[in-house]
Design a binder for these strands. Structure first.
Lengths: 209, 209
DNA sequence: CGACCGAGAGAACCGGCGTTCTCTACGGTA
DNA sequence: TACCGTAGAGAACGCCGGTTCTCTCGGTCG
C-alpha cells in the first residue's frame, strides 16, 4: 500500500472516530482496526497520537473551508454570499452523525493539555473569522458585523450538535439577516440624518425607546 | 469530617480540576489530593467517577443560573434585564481561569459516550434558553429573539474561552442590542405601516435594498 | 537460489487510572 | 481496660491504551 494511501486511510479513520466519539475515547488500535493500516505504519506516519490528532484537525480545516468557499462562490451578490455561509452551516448541521464543531469539541477535551491541539483550534477559528470578515468587507458592511456573525455561527454549530437539530442554523441565519439590516440602516442614518453620531459605534442609537 | 463537608470539598475539587483540565485528564486520585477526601469516602459519596462528573455539572448549573438571576435581578427595566445577561457573561468570561462553557466542553469530551453527562448538558442549555425566553417575553418581544440571543451567548462563551478574552461578550452584547432594535422596529412597522406582512415572519422585510 | 529488506500481525512492555482491599489508628462504650 | 466500628492511608488489582518489539512471510536483488 502506498504511503499516501495509508496516510489518507489513517486520517479518514481518525476523522470518523475522533469526531464521532471524542479523541480520548479512541485508541490507536481503533484507528488501526478502522483504517486497516498497521500500528507500525501508523507510527511511521505519525510519531505519536497527538500528531495524528493534529493532522486530523488540519486536514479537516482545509476541507471544511474549501467546501464553505465553494458553496459561497455559487453566489455573486455580496449579501447573498454572506447569508450563504449560514445556509451551508444548515446543510452541515443536518448531515447524519453531526456532533457539533470538531474544533470546539477538541478544545474542550484537550485545549488545556495539548498545545498543538490548541494551536490548531485557534488557527481554524481565526481563519473562519477572517473569511467572514472578508465577506463583510466585500459587502461594504462595517467590520464589527463580522465578529457578530462569527458568534452566531459558533453558537449555531454548538447548539445544533447538542440538540441534534439543524434548527439553530436557521435561527442564526434569521439573526444574521436582522443584523445585516440593522447595520445598513445605521450606516444610512449616519450619512443622511445624523452624521454627528458617527464616531460612537456603541449602543447609543439603540437604547432610545 | 461531616458527610456534607466531604461532599462539598469533593465537588469543589471536581469543579476546579474538571473545568480547568478536562474531565478525562483528571484522575480520582487528583480529586483526592485536591479535596483532602480519601478515596474510600469519595466512593461512598459517588459510586463511580461518572456520577461525580454528573454531580459536578448539576451543582455548577444551579450556582451558575442563580448567579445569573441575581445579576439580572439588579435591573427592573425588561430590556435592561435582557442586556444584563450579556454584561454578566462578560464578567464571567473575564474571570481568571475562564476556559469556556463547562457544559459545551463536557459535551465535546463525553457527550458521545456518557448518557448521564449528555443529559446534564441538555438540561443546562434548555434551562438557560428557557430563562432567556422568559426575559424576552417579559420585554414584550417576539419569541424568536430568545433563540437568537441564546446563540449569541453560546458563541460568546465558546469564543471567549478559546481566545482567552472577554471581547466576544462585548460583541455579543452589541449584536443583542441591534437584534432587539430590529425586532422592535419590525413590530412597529407591522402595526403601523405594513400590517399585511405580519404573517410571514421570515426575511421578506430584510432582503430589499 | 539464497540473502536481505520491508511490511503486517500481534504480543509485549509500561505507565496510568478506576476501583477495591488491607492494615493501622483512633474514639466511643460497657 | 477490652472491644468494636469507622475512617484514612496507601497498596493492590485489573484493565486499558500508547508505544515498541518480535516473528514471520513475501518480494527483490545479486
Amino acid at each position: 500500500m502506498d504511503t499516501e494511501v495509508a496516510r489518507a486511510r489513517a486520517l479518514d479513520a481518525a476523522e470518523e472516530l475522533f469526531y464521532g466519539r471524542g479523541i480520548q475515547s479512541v485508541g490507536m488500535d481503533d484507528i488501526r482496526g478502522t483504517s486497516g493500516v498497521s500500528l507500525k505504519r501508523l507510527y511511521q506516519l505519525f510519531p505519536a497520537k497527538e500528531q495524528l490528532v493534529e493532522a486530523y484537525l488540519q486536514r479537516r480545516d482545509e476541507r471544511w473551508r474549501q467546501r464553505l468557499a465553494e458553496y459561497v462562490d455559487r453566489h455573486t451578490d455580496p449579501v447573498e454570499r454572506l447569508l450563504a455561509v449560514f445556509e451551508w452551516l444548515r446543510e452541515s448541521c443536518a448531515e447524519p452523525g453531526f456532533r457539533g464543531c470538531a474544533w470546539i469539541n477538541s478544545y474542550g477535551e484537550l485545549g488545556a493539555t495539548s498545545p498543538r491541539v490548541l494551536a490548531q483550534v485557534r488557527a481554524h477559528k481565526q481563519a473562519f473569522k477572517a473569511y467572514l470578515a472578508g465577506l463583510v468587507g466585500d459587502a461594504g458592511l462595517p467590520a464589527p458585523l463580522g465578529d457578530q456573525l462569527f458568534l452566531l455561527a459558533e453558537g449555531a454549530m454548538v447548539t445544533a450538535g447538542m440538540e441534534a437539530s439543524p434548527a439553530p442554523a436557521d435561527q442564526a441565519r434569521r439573526a444574521a439577516e436582522l443584523l445585516l439590516a440593522a447595520h445598513r440602516w445605521r450606516e444610512t442614518d449616519r450619512e443622511t440624518a445624523d452624521p454627528g453620531r458617527a464616531a460612537g459605534c456603541g449602543d447609543a442609537g439603540v437604547r432610545r425607546r
